[in-house]
Amino acid sequence: MVSQPLLSIEDLRVEFDRGEDTVYAVNGVSFSIAEGETLGIVGESGSGKSVTLMSAIGLIRENGRIRSGRALFQGTDLLKLSERQLEDIRGREIGVVFQDPMTSLNPVMRIGDQIMEAMLAHHFCSHREAFERTLQLLHEMGIPEPRARFRNYPHEFSGGMRQRIMMAIALACEPQLLIADEPTTALDVTVQMQILALLEEQRRKRNMAVAIITHDFGVATNFCDRIIVLYAGQIMEVADTGAFIRESAHPYTVGLKHSIIEIGHRAKPLKPIPGMAPTVTEMPRSCSFAPRCPLATERCRNELPQLREIGPGHWVACHRAEEVLADVI
């Protein structure tokens, strides 16, 4: 694997206005994605996992703003680009797949035209080539009878098939990075398996980098090279999947692992993490997880833990990471 960063996010801070409050959604997040790498960004609702990547590519809700940071894509800071310049990159060099294809596909446009449009809008190829490529893409995405299906509208497809169409659009211009935001969350398990297998096959074939945003540890650990855990808009832990599986060093990661119910767990007692994730309305000055953490001490309640490297490429933001590694919880 080449380890040149394709996308490098540096100290990103994103805020939202909510009534009179400011919600600090992303609080100084830095990470990079290498060429050809599959990165998993894991977290629960409100952790900032989607907001981080979406704001980096200029997709941010109206009540939100980027306070600071850089998002270098092949050396260009995406945060400094105009909307038009961003549109050139999005859909061309960076493809995006969302959780719910129904809200991102145009309901009154034939799906074939939508795939063609993705290429024509970016002047990727001629009209005739775009047509041929669309048929080819539909075929590659596993949609039977591409020529006939070209003329169908989104509602004439199942959820799984619509996700395949979204992938065809995202991959149409041969992007170097694919951002997949909870691509299988709304799907049944057998369909999830189909979509992930397809994503994996396409990733290999195109040697494309993939950033998959998910709340599912099963998806992240089986699919990704490296995993980032976000909580309250901050990175709690970053590790290669191997280290992530064997030696999680953040109490939140460990707590989430204990929260997973798998087949064969019938007799096991449950160990829930108490409480719930906060909405961050003040700039964090201490560990955001401390109120729910079984290991929290005075220090955790007073001093913000910085990300520190505890093993090669293994970063964790916890004052007591060594003890977590030594299995105290």
Binding site: V189, T190, Q192, M193, L196, D216, F217, G218, V219, T221, N222, F223, T241, G242, I245, R246, K257, I260, E262, I263
Partner: peptide, 13 residues
Amino acid sequence: VLIQSILKMPRSL
């Protein structure tokens, strides 16, 4: 098939 489709967290790579 349903059971095999569930992605379990592996114990090692």
